[in-house]
């Protein structure tokens, strides 16, 4: 257990060190979420088309856009394992005296580092658009923790997909095919109640829904009624993804 924690922390540290030397990606990746807020958010708040139970629309979707950004970063990060198959790093990690699942969890969780950076970029943009966050540091830290943890689950999900693909060519298309359905079939942009029945069912099984609810509660609405459920679902999702990814990891290396 100690061994595993050590490996996970080393990989998170690695990601922080890598980030220090290459910041361009941070900013190019920030373009998309900023557009969602500035263009989509402001236009739709003019329309008043979506019932948000009293909160301004930009405020409503800010947590959704944060999670979309987290999802995007995490899925692409996990898929880069396909890339690393061709380098020696993956092989060397497999031969390191550390449990294999720790490598998978470490890789997944370190996506959270990049995800949190994205969120940190989104916040000042949201503030400029007049979004009012709950001024409670404990809530804020809890929200970041949720974003960090769900990022690990999504990265593991994409490791599973990567282990099925094994080639770079299929890479980009699959990334989009994974991200967009999860994003649209969730409560990121509109409440579940306003969806058609079929999509509602998908949304209920979509872990993103629970993460959005938790972050929205902690950052914007202060409604934490479902927080325990949200946390439970996210934890379950992560554990399940880590377990399956550890098993399917074998396929990547052979």
């Amino acid at each position: 257990m100690n061994d595993s924690l050590r490996v996970v922390l080393a990989m998170i540290e690695l990601e922080l060190r890598r980030l220090r030397n290459d910041r361009t990606e941070v900013f190019t990746r920030a373009v998309q979420p900023v557009l969602w807020l500035v263009v989509f958010g402001t236009v739709f708040s003019q329309l008043h088309a979506i019932p948000t139970s009293g909160i301004p629309y930009v405020d409503y979707i800010t947590p959704g856009v944060m999670l979309q950004s987290v999802l995007f970063v995490a899925v692409l990060y996990g898929l880069t394992l396909v890339w690393e198959r061709d380098t020696g790093i993956l092989k060397k990690l497999l031969v390191a005296p550390a449990p294999r699942y720790a490598t998978v969890i470490g890789r997944s969780m370190s996506s959270g580092v990049r995800a949190i950076i994205q969120v940190v970029i989104i916040i000042p943009v949201a503030l400029l658009l007049g979004v009012s966050f709950i001024p409670n540091p404990a809530y804020f830290v809890a929200a970041l923790a949720i974003l960090f943890v769900i990022s690990g689950g999504f990265a593991a999900l994409s490791i599973i997909v990567a282990s099925l693909l094994k080639t770079r060519e299929r890479f980009m298309g699959i990334g989009q095919a994974l991200i967009l359905p999860l994003f649209f079939a969730s409560n990121a942009l509109y409440p579940i109640a306003s969806m058609p029945r079929a999509i509602q069912i998908v949304a209920v099984f979509n872990p993103l829904t629970y993460a959005v609810d938790a972050v929205r509660g902690l950052m914007i609405t202060g409604n934490l009624a479902l927080l325990p459920l949200d946390v439970a679902v996210i934890a379950l999702f992560d554990i399940l993804m880590f377990a399956v990814a550890s098993l399917s990891f074998r396929k990547i290396i052979e």
């Binding site: 060190r17 890598r18 290459d22 020696g88 060397k92 005296p97």
Partner: peptide
């Protein structure tokens, strides 16, 4: 794995640190 060292054919260090 505790007693072996391994250098694969392909590059196995991180180039951005």
């Amino acid at each position: 794995r505790k007693v072996i060292g391994y250098v694969p054919q392909e590059t196995s260090v991180w180039s951005d640190i």
